[in-house]
Amino acid sequence: MISIKNLHKKFGDLEVLKGIDADVQKGQAIVVIGPSGSGKTTFLRCLNTLETPTSGSVTIDEQTVDFSKSLSKKQIMAFRKQSAMVFQHYNLFPHMTALENVMEGPITVQKQDKKLARKKAEQLLTKVGLGEKINEYPFQLSGGQQQRVGIARALALEPKVMLFDEPTSALDPELVGEVLQVMKDLAAEGMTMVVVTHEMRFAKGVADEVLFMDEGRIIERGKPEDIFNHPKEERTQRFLNLIQKTDII
């Protein structure tokens, strides 16, 4: 489904991604972990071309983009459609209701029929448990509810891949569960997902594979139980000890 080859990203002189290779099968959920500044966000943003990688190639569903070549806006837009991003801070449009947030992509970008888009948006919001809240503005919703609207907004575009950047790390602890549940359901339905998160329970319960990133490289990858219980690399061990101690998990 996704194939990433030798992906590099530089910001000026700072090389943030130093050659990432990864493959994700259709329907798999991949969890990415790693210390702050290791490039996890940048990696996800490159997959959605919110950042343009410096070099390397990414294939999503047989559509390949080689970033070493210069690309037209059209090519980038076409490629971006393959995936959709869920942000750490939700980034909902504050001037639109939950329903309008979800309908925005289908109507403005995909030029869908308004009635149809509305119906689909209502279904999606019901699916993430917000059927009663469709006419609320973001400020009237809790963080967990806002993030679920964010997920519905991304799903409305019918992407092939969902990208999640620490979707629960801005939430109060008691709201984390409701968002993770929605993500679990998605995974169970066979959505292909790349998730940056330090939620160990989610990784253990849902992930097909865990990638550990450090300093712009993937240092170790494997089944969640292997990575968490018997990490091979010393850096992975150190990181896991650290997050277990600081109780991020």
């Binding site: 919110l50 837009m77 971006r80 459609k81 959709a84 942000f87 992509g105 970008v109 991304a154 575009l157």
Partner: peptide, 9 residues
């Protein structure tokens, strides 16, 4: 960025 990710020009 949110506008970008839903494909807006």
């Amino acid at each position: 960025e949110a506008a970008d990710t839903i494909g807006m020009s």
